[in-house]
Computed example of a mutant assay.
Amino acid sequence: MNSARRADAESEYLVLQEAAEWFAVLRADDAALADQLEWQRWHDASPSHRAAWRRVEAVSAEFQLLPGEPARIALDEVGPRARNDGRRAAIKGVMLLCLTAGLGGAVFGRRDTRNWLAGLNAQQGTRVGDIRQLVLADGGALWLNTNTSLDIDYTPALRRIALYSGEILITTAQDSQQPARPLVVDVLHGRLRALGTRFTVRTSADATLLSVYEGKVQVEPREGGGTRIVAAGAQLRFDAASIGQPYPLDDNATAWTEHRLMPDQMRLDDFLAELSRYRRGHLGCAPEVAHLRLVGSYPLADTDRILAALAATLPVRVRRLHDWWVTVEAAPLEK
């Protein structure tokens, strides 16, 4: 990381910390009018302050911590059926985001809105931190990583998996029907066609990551740009209009199917970004310790234990401003 990027990262980290600390001050029982006025001055002083505050509010919304009669009324109007539905938490999150910081327009104005809404009503899914394995109708195996949503649609002509969010690993099986039906995975950015294989697909708003462990997979972006066949041992990213260059995959990247992470000389900031997928809230890394390297095996059953292990083996400490706002930073020097 060059000096300019490092400075930007440090600045963003400090502003986020300030925003989280202000949130804690204003939520305290002894918060005074003077605190509110001082926060307002801080909030209005810079666009970066306002952006950081919106991010803290968005994270807090996951935990239903934002007060206010409008939020309570909106949630009550969801109705008893939704309250009993597994999608209630997602619906709550959307409502709270719409009621705070004007984030609703940003969510519903996205090009992938239809994909996102389909994910809320998906047949299959996992919550944050959960991992599931399914047996497909053709005998294949499908693993769903944390916070994943998808539909499975096997028709007389096609075996289709629609992945709306998250990550999956597929081990394909030979189709019992003749002629054999193609097996495809549809994502926001295009279609993947399995050619007798074992592979993972990981989605994000900007691109999809394909990693092929056995066989081959054909990539076809949604908006054209040709196709490419990716062979075992390679991975690449693609978006709706283009396909990136393949590069060697990490054999340990599928350790999540065994409910663990296995970094091999992974940077601490990259490791924490990966770990954050398995817990709610914000998990940050201070720039001064981001370069530290990790190896080993970390069971995902308890992410707090992983953080404790980091503090015991690295020159870092875990700082908790809230249950949902945690940062790993340099341990203080002993006097």
Rank of each mutant, 00 (worst) to 15 (best):
residue 225 G to F: 08
residue 275 L to I: 10
residue 268 L to Y: 04
residue 265 Q to G: 14
residue 226 G to Q: 03
residue 252 N to F: 09
residue 269 D to T: 00
residue 297 S to P: 14
residue 236 L to R: 00
residue 248 P to D: 10
residue 317 R to L: 14
residue 289 V to G: 10
residue 266 M to F: 02
residue 313 T to Q: 13
residue 306 I to Q: 01
residue 317 R to D: 15
residue 231 A to I: 12
residue 297 S to R: 09
residue 230 V to C: 06
residue 222 R to F: 13
residue 249 L to A: 02
residue 244 G to S: 00
residue 309 A to V: 11
residue 271 F to L: 09
residue 300 L to N: 00
residue 306 I to H: 00
residue 252 N to I: 10
residue 261 L to M: 04
residue 264 D to C: 03
residue 305 R to V: 13
residue 304 D to I: 06
residue 297 S to N: 13
residue 224 G to Q: 05
residue 250 D to N: 08
residue 226 G to R: 01
residue 277 R to L: 15
residue 303 T to D: 07
residue 310 L to G: 04
residue 309 A to G: 14
residue 290 A to V: 04
residue 286 A to P: 12
residue 301 A to L: 11
residue 254 T to F: 06
residue 249 L to S: 02
residue 223 E to F: 12
residue 245 Q to R: 14
residue 288 E to C: 11
residue 218 Q to T: 11
residue 297 S to D: 15
residue 260 R to Y: 09
residue 303 T to Y: 03
residue 245 Q to G: 13
residue 313 T to H: 14
residue 230 V to I: 12
residue 230 V to S: 01
residue 276 S to F: 10
residue 310 L to Y: 02
residue 309 A to E: 15
residue 274 E to I: 04
residue 232 A to N: 04
residue 234 A to T: 14
residue 265 Q to V: 03
residue 272 L to W: 00
residue 286 A to Q: 05
residue 292 L to R: 01
residue 288 E to I: 04
residue 250 D to G: 03
residue 256 W to T: 05
residue 256 W to L: 03
residue 257 T to A: 02
residue 278 Y to S: 08
residue 271 F to P: 08
residue 264 D to P: 05
residue 312 A to G: 12
residue 300 L to M: 04
residue 283 L to G: 05
residue 302 D to H: 07
residue 269 D to Y: 00
residue 259 H to W: 11
